[in-house]
């Protein structure tokens, strides 16, 4: 079972207490965006085999959205952080780089 620590209430929440919310840090383009940007926003997924930043919601807990960094090849969780964060925290990125030297780094 996947266990993620909710960054708000500090609880180690089982996967059954959580709802997955897909890729994180997606730029939300509006109606005035170009077709390319809007298509990318709605549909183009990174879907990496490896380090993935994603959104989760603590549905059967505090109910809040948060972010997690996880490896989709090993299911290792690198860390979680609040949703009000535009890029993954530097400390978390350093930690991931140490564990996964091949990781190309976070790109917006």
């Amino acid at each position: 079972m996947l266990i993620l620590t909710c960054p708000y209430c500090g609880i180690d929440a089982d996967e059954t207490d959580l709802a997955p919310g897909g890729e994180a840090h997606v730029t939300r383009h509006g109606a005035d965006a170009s077709d390319d940007d809007f298509e990318a926003y709605l549909f183009h997924k990174r879907n990496p085999r490896g380090v993935h930043f994603e959104r989760w919601r603590h549905v059967y807990g505090c109910g809040k959205w948060f972010h997690a960094a996880r490896d989709t090849m090993t299911l290792e969780v690198f860390g979680t952080y609040p949703a009000q964060t535009l890029v993954p925290p530097k400390t978390l990125q350093t930690k991931i780089k140490k564990k996964r030297p091949d990781w190309k780094g976070f790109k917006k």
Binding site: L2, P20, E23, P48, R49, E54, T72, M73, T74, L75
Partner: peptide
């Protein structure tokens, strides 16, 4: 959730 492990929950 995204997963490449061929192992589910």
């Amino acid at each position: 959730f995204n997963n490449y492990t061929q192992r589910g929950s």
